[in-house]
């Protein structure tokens, strides 16, 4: 064998074979997930600030049950459980879209559904069709409709919970003190889900994601743009629509979820626009007060279709005469 398959002599040392390329950027799934969690700390901080101990409880329960469910499911499927942070992201996102006064056992049920059904049954990370946190919330809306639609004004730490209406319940009627209202919406001093009230902090979280190139601008910009345009067409105030109803949280953190959004840039613009249009339509014409959750879920179902049809033209494609 020595004489025929390699040159005479041979250095005797054999080196390993590896595939090209032999250099990597250093990206990893864990790094992406932990950066998303870091970005989510902004709306989480807002939630804890405004809603105090209630918020902390919901967050802890949601994250624990999400991670625990993933562990159990991986065990049942015989696959290794890697703590790459993706279950933490889902748990945290689910907590942030819960009303602060929700009973903790309901949160646990929702977390189990999000990971167990909406993610693991489909095949795990990368295979889910619907955004797990939003699917969990939708499930809970069906099972526990009343607690899911009870909102309280910010309690901070210690104050009693006082039920209140949110801008969505009010059908976006703007009180006379417009500037103060916008400001409240912007910083989050209103009723709503734990993480969605503060546009400012959701925006900061979104900027972190954009800066680290975890997401690109196409989906959020298309989403915001479509919401504002359609709201204007309905004769509503675009700014109120932009600043309320968890739009910022949804546009930056949920619509941009990799597995459930299109792969190409053009596809992403269409996806974002579709979400935006549906959001306002649901808010105005639908029975539900809030539109972001369902609009994203509906567009998730269209993602494979968008991917199939909106592909980039390969380099050097010649137009058929």
């Amino acid at each position: 064998m020595e004489e025929t398959t390699n040159t005479a002599g041979g250095s005797g040392i054999k080196y390993l074979i590896s595939h090209a390329p032999h250099a990597w950027k250093g990206e990893s799934v864990s790094r992406i997930m932990w950066l998303v969690i870091a970005a989510l700390l902004f709306p989480t901080a807002a939630g804890i600030y405004y809603f105090g101990f209630n918020a902390i409880g919901v967050i802890i329960v949601s994250v624990l049950f999400a991670v625990g469910t993933e562990w159990v499911c991986k065990h049942m499927r015989g696959k290794p459980f890697i703590m790459d942070g993706s279950a933490v992201v889902t748990g945290l996102l689910l907590a942030l879209i819960m009303p602060p006064t929700i009973p903790l056992w309901m949160v646990a049920v929702g977390a189990i559904f999000s990971i167990g059904i909406a993610k693991e049954v489909f095949g795990g990370l990368g295979y889910n069709v619907f955004n797990p946190a939003l699917a969990g919330r939708a499930f809970m809306m069906v099972c526990f409709a009343q607690p899911l639609t009870t909102w309280v004004a910010p309690t901070f730490f210690g104050a009693d919970a006082v039920t209140t209406a949110t801008p969505l319940n009010e059908n976006f009627i703007i009180p006379p003190e417009k500037a103060a209202f916008y400001w409240d919406l912007f910083i989050g001093n209103i009723g709503g889900s734990i993480g969605e009230t503060s546009f400012l902090l959701c925006l900061l979280g979104g900027i972190v994601l954009l800066a680290f190139k975890i997401i690109d601008w196409h989906i959020p910009v298309a989403f915001f743009g479509a919401v504002m345009i359609v709201a204007f067409l309905f004769g509503q105030d675009p700014v109120v629509h932009l600043l309320s109803g968890g739009l910022a949280l949804g546009a930056f953190f949920m619509a941009t979820d990799y597995a459930t959004s299109p792969l190409t840039m053009r596809g992403r613009l269409l996806f974002g626009a579709g979400c935006g249009i549906l959001t306002v339509l649901i808010r105005q014409l639908g029975g539900m007060p809030e539109g972001v959750c369902f609009s994203i879920l509906l567009m998730n179902s269209l993602t494979p279709l968008i991917d199939r049809h909106l592909q980039p033209k390969p380099f050097g494609s010649v137009k058929k005469a």
Binding site: G9, G10, S11, Y15, I17, S18, A20, H22
Partner: peptide
Amino acid sequence: GVTEIIAGGPMMGVSVTDTSYP
């Protein structure tokens, strides 16, 4: 600690197992 020799660059080069190759 060198375990691989590559003919070419890091992006498109091929692994060489035997360094008596020319």
